[in-house]
Design a protein around this nucleic acid. Structure first.
Lengths: 226, 226
DNA sequence: CAAGAATCTGAGAAAAAGCTGAGAAAGGAT
DNA sequence: ATCCTTTCTCAGCTTTTTCTCAGATTCTTG
């Protein structure tokens, strides 16, 4: 799966690239509209992620020109917060989906998945580990048969951990995926949220193994204690 | 179920595709009449959704030529608002149904369903959950034996929720399905309508379980409280 | 065991999400 | 034309969530 990211802010472009590569996509970057158009029209990408405001040729123009050239690669448009009006324009320009900045990385991944793979179905919508299960359609979290009520952030954090079972995720990785790229989140916030999760899915079940493990110095991990 | 959408406005084409895929149809898009005709005549679709005004060959011509070639795939014609007169022509050209733009997404779904499950029968026209039942032929809504009078929008909102029982639907999803694709609806409007529905199907029955649940941060859901 | 670093946690301020009454605007029916 | 219904927005209010801070605790290492 190849993805082209057209984004002039290097910081954002690189963090998107890094994140997508971690999900094993092959990512190219173009830092302006003209270069973006050239790459998108000559190379064969599965998705183009296109910022609306670009030097040279703006995202909308790139989008329109690509469609005019009969290139129908799915386009995910990124629009800054104020420009709500541009949503409509973005779509009419031929984009397939849009995402309002700033976004949490997991949201981007979700959109990209939606554009590449099938629509979300009932079959692969449940993540589980041991007797913990997380349903991404009903947003239900269960430990055994007991329902746990999680807030949105708690849910995304748990979902992120659960999509990488047994792997140690650093606080930095967690922040990059679960929070906005430009939210300035302290590592301590992750600790706090891990605490909230433990209160809800580990502490109430003292006889069951703890699933959220601290790997001091490295990060956190979903996994059985040994 | 495979559907071909022939529509030159990318915005509309994409939003139709997205919505139909969420209903687990497989969707192809053609952006002009010629390409549309080629695909419809060589591939095997269950339905063709065909815009009337198209570059190249217009919808009517595509429709006629397909029928001439003895291809009887059901055709759903899309016509813009002013062109009421064309309705008749559309039908005489061999279309099976038509829909006036702009339409709410649920309307399209309904037509598509009607065309795929051949004669719409009385059997699958009633949606229900617990003691709530919604008849999509008579537009009657009942809680137990009590009739509830709903307005059109209230009805489509309830119908949309009820077609996805237990699944959490975000305000964005609800807006995309229940309102026109070009309506600019605030999330708060959904909150207001949810309120109206509750006043009619939950509040008057204080002894029965509430069916419309708020999942703060996620969306709304038809489901029993637990 | 002591010191430093990493992590945990209770408290609380700030922000976001959701609910609701009121009312403007548009459409239909009589 | 008038009245009623429906659609939709707005502003004020309540509830919940998010995030930071500061002090406590735990772990590691010499």
């Amino acid at each position: 799966m190849r993805i082209l990211v057209v984004e002039d802010e290097h910081k954002i472009a690189n963090s998107i690239k890094k994140g997508l590569e971690q999900e094993s996509y092959a990512v190219d970057i173009a830092y302006d509209g003209v270069q973006g158009f050239d790459l998108a029209s000559t190379e064969d990408y599965d998705i183009v992620i296109l910022d609306l405001l670009l030097p040279g040729m703006d995202g909308l123009a790139v989008c329109k020109r690509l469609r005019d050239e009969n290139i129908h690669t799915p386009i995910l448009m990124l629009t800054a917060k104020g420009e709500l009006h541009d949503k409509v324009e973005g779509f009419s320009g031929g984009a397939d989906d849009y995402l309002v900045k700033p976004f949490a990385f997991e949201e981007l991944i979700a959109r990209v998945r939606a554009l590449t793979r099938r629509p979300r179905n009932r079959l692969n919508s449940v993540l589980s580990y041991g007797d913990l299960s997380v349903n991404t359609l009903t947003f239900e979290v269960k430990r055994g048969k007991t329902l746990c009520r999680l807030s949105k952030k708690e849910f995304s954090l748990l979902e992120y951990l659960l999509r990488h079972p047994d792997i140690v995720l650093s606080k930095e990785q967690i922040i990059a995926h679960v929070w906005d790229y430009d939210a300035d989140i302290l590592p301590n916030t992750v600790e706090v949220y891990i605490g909230y999760l433990r209160n809800k899915i580990d502490k109430p079940f003292p006889k069951k193994p703890r699933l959220i493990r601290t790997r001091r110095g490295f990060g956190y991990q979903i996994g059985r204690e040994r």
